[in-house]
Computed example of a mutant assay.
Amino acid sequence: MARRNVLITGCSSGIGLALAVKMAKDEQKRFKVYATMRNLAKKEPLEEAAGDRLGKTLEIKQLDVCDELSIKACVNSIPDRRIDVLVSNAGMGLIGPIECQTIEEMKTVMDTNFFGLVRLLKEILPDMKKRKSGHIVIISSVMGIQGILFNDVYAASKFAVEGFCESLAIQALKFKLQLSLIEPGPVVTEFERKVFEDGMKMDLSAADAETAEMFTNIYLKNYKQIFQSLGQSAEDVAEHTVKIILAENPPFRHQTNTLYTPMTTLKYADPNGDLPIDIFYKMVFQHDKIFSASLNFIKLLRWRSRKSFDLGKPSQ
C-alpha cells in the first residue's frame, strides 16, 4: 500500500495532536502526516510527542481554517497538492445561556466549526474529485445528532456540519470518495477544560435569576462529573479514527463512546422528537439525584475495570 498523505487541522492539543502522533508513529509507515495549527507558537507539545518522527513521517504546518489564503498556502506547500486523507478537527466550544453570549461569539463558533470545514473542502475537494480518490474525515460530535442543555450554539454548529456532510456524501459517492463523521461524546482534553473555565467566568447578569441558577448549580455542577464518568481520552478517539481511516468500507457515521450511545438512540426512537427532550428534562430537573448516582456508578465500574486490567499486567 502506497503511503497516504494525511492533513489534520487543530493539532496543537487534544484529539488533533493525539491523532497526528499516532498516525506518524504507525509501525507500517502507512502515513505522511501534515499536522496543522492556527498558531505555530503552540507547536512544542506536538514536537515533543512526535519525537524522532518529526521531519520524517510528520511535518508541522500553519493553517487557519478561518482564513482561505492560509488554507491555500498550506495545501500548495504539499507536494503535488496531494491530500489522500483530510481530517477536519479544528473547532471551538461555547456554553452558557444565549442571553449572555454575543452574536459575535456565536458567529466565531459557526465560522470555525462549520465554515472552517467548508473552506477546507472548497480548496481540497476539487483535487480529490479529479483523482477520484480521497477520504474526508470530520471530527463531529454526538451534539451534531442531539442538542444538550446550554450547548445551543455549539450543537447548532455541529448540526450544520452533519447536514452539510449528509448532502455532500451523495455527491462524494459519484467521485468514489469516502466521507466519515467521527462523533465523540465527552472527551477529556484542554479544549473541554477551556470551555469549562470560560463558562465559570461567564457574566450571567443578562440572564434571569432562574436561568443563571440553572447554569451554575445544575449544568456546571454536573459538568466535571459527566466527563469523569463518561469521558474518553483524546488517544482513545484517535484510535477509533485511525480504524475508520484504515477500514476498507468506512461508515458514514461512527460514535466513539458506547456509554453515550443510548442517549443518541433516543433521537431515532421517536419520530416526533419528544422522547429525548422529555427524558433529558426529567433527568435534569426531576430525577437529578438518580442521574448523579448513575454517573457515580458508571465511574466506579470504569475505575474497577481499569484497576482489574492494570492488576492483570505482568510485573516489571
Rank of each mutant, 00 (worst) to 15 (best):
H135F: 05
I83E: 01
D274L: 13
A234Y: 00
R306M: 15
I71C: 05
F285T: 05
S294H: 12
I290E: 11
G96L: 02
T261F: 11
T9M: 03
P126M: 09
E239W: 09
K56P: 14
L204I: 06
M23C: 03
K267N: 14
V161W: 00
R131N: 07
E68W: 15
G312T: 06
F164H: 03
L54R: 09
G51P: 06
G55S: 08
C66W: 13
L177R: 00
H287M: 12
D52Y: 14
I95R: 09
M1V: 14
V75H: 03
Q225F: 04
E235A: 03
E239L: 11
F196C: 15
L69N: 15
L69G: 12
L301I: 15
L179C: 02
K107Q: 13
K289M: 15
Q228L: 15
T112N: 10
V188Y: 12
C165W: 00
A247D: 14
R302T: 13
E213L: 06
K130F: 12
C165R: 00
G93L: 07
A293H: 08
P314V: 11
K42W: 03
K243C: 13
P271R: 07
K299W: 10
M106V: 13
R131P: 04
S315R: 09
F291Q: 04
P314L: 11
F159R: 02
Y223N: 13
N76T: 07
K307I: 14
I138M: 06
V284A: 13
L17S: 03
R119H: 10
I277R: 12
R119E: 07
E213T: 05
A169S: 03
K313D: 15
K61T: 09
R81A: 10
H240V: 12
V242T: 10
N76Q: 12
G147N: 04
N257E: 03
F297C: 15
L17R: 04
N296W: 13
N89E: 02
T265C: 14
R3N: 12
F291R: 04
E47D: 10
R304F: 14
V187Q: 02
I124G: 00
K22V: 05
R304Y: 12
K267S: 10
I145D: 13
R131V: 10
D80C: 09
S292I: 12
A269P: 02
R53I: 06
A269N: 08
E248M: 09
D203L: 05
L230E: 04
H240D: 13
G93C: 09
G231M: 02
F291V: 06
E47S: 09
M92P: 15
K299E: 15
T57D: 08
T9N: 02
Y219G: 07
P79A: 08
D111R: 11
I136K: 01
M200L: 14
V137N: 01
A169Q: 01
N222G: 13
F285Y: 11
R302H: 12
V237F: 01
G93E: 10
I15E: 03
S167E: 00
N296E: 13
G55C: 08
T102A: 11
A20Y: 00
D208A: 06
R81E: 11
T256G: 04
F31L: 04
M263G: 02
D26M: 06
E59I: 07
H287L: 11
K130Y: 14
G163E: 02
E190M: 08
T216V: 13
T9D: 03
C165H: 02
F215T: 02
Y219M: 11
F191K: 05
V161P: 00
I71D: 01
M263C: 07
P262L: 00
M263D: 04
T261R: 15
